[in-house]
Design a protein around this nucleic acid. Structure first.
Length: 279
DNA sequence: ATGTCCATTATTAATGGA
């Protein structure tokens, strides 16, 4: 079983490229972020023709998350418990939720596609929202794993945080001045580890960025950021056999500014064709 | 030169978000 997370930056602009990659790379499940459309606008037909079922949450041209799968999708959840909302100029407990989280169960795996708020600036209300959003999700993670310590859970998405200094290759991110690298954001990220998750890609692929800004020739200069992650519980991590960052997807015509991050799992499925059949 | 891209609102250009 091969699963991926990918901030696609408009599924309407890039669905052909996305599906080409999914078929070519034999990907079973993709958690998409920034689909930038509503359910009525989502290009379902080409996914279905390629053999993928899709569940999604999209409210408008901003944000939007989806999960596409070759296997049956069960127990879909829009948003996580206690998820805070945000509306510029209308901050507070009554702010509406944004389309940033969708959860589903596939082959017994509990998967979340997550688009963590950007934060915008250290003194922007969006930054406090980002930290609140992350803290609530970490608390939920603790609850989910307390209820079932053997749950194969993965949080997949664009976390908009570079946990390590080596994850920062873009010189416009300046310590003390920029989001994505501030100590409170890094502490918020480490809370997922305390809750029982770990980055299941980094031990296998310690190097590489997942995002390069369109501006300033960031990709040709390889001035990127590592901000897209798959965080798995013990039971999920136990099934991981490989991982990869598909840097080639930043090349060519009309790429997203993010690339797919992939993990390969051994679920012991009889129809898993990644292993030779022995009769 | 922010060496850009996307979607929307508005009517060929401005806005907001990243």
């Amino acid at each position: 079983m091969r699963i991926a997370t990918w901030n696609i930056n408009s599924i309407r602009s890039r669905h052909a490229r996305a599906i080409d990659w999914m078929v070519r790379e034999d990907v079973d499940v993709v958690a998409f972020q920034e689909i930038k459309c509503t359910e009525a606008q989502f290009p379902l037909a080409p996914f279905e023709e390629a053999g993928y079922e899709v569940v999604l949450h999209g409210l408008n041209q901003w944000n939007g998350v989806a999960i596409a799968s070759r296997h049956p999708i069960e127990d879909v959840e829009i948003g996580f418990p206690g998820q805070p909302g945000f509306l510029k100029g209308h901050e507070g407990p009554d702010a509406p939720l944004e389309a940033r989280a969708i959860g589903a169960t596939i082959e017994g795996l509990r998967l979340w596609s997550l688009y963590v708020p950007n934060g915008r600036a250290l003194d922007d209300p969006h930054y406090a929202y980002k930290l609140d959003w992350l803290a609530t999700l970490a608390a939920d993670t603790r609850d989910w794993l307390a209820a079932d310590p053997e749950l194969p859970l993965a949080l997949m998405g664009d976390f908009n945080i570079a946990p390590l200094d080596s994850d920062v290759g873009d010189p416009s991110f300046i310590p003390g001045l920029s989001t994505h690298i501030s100590p409170p954001e890094r502490t918020a990220f480490s809370a997922f580890e305390k809750a029982g998750l770990r980055d299941v890609v980094r031990p296998i692929r310690p190097d590489g960025f997942t995002f390069w800004d369109y501006k300033q020739l960031r990709f040709p200069r390889n001035e990127g950021m590592r901000i897209d992650f798959i965080l798995g519980s013990q039971a999920f991590a136990d099934r991981v056999v490989d991982a990869s960052i598909h840097r080639e997807e930043r090349k060519g015509d009309g790429p997203s500014d993010h690339v797919p991050v992939v993990v390969d799992l051994d679920l012991g499925l009889e129809d898993d064709d990644d292993r030779p059949m022995i009769f």
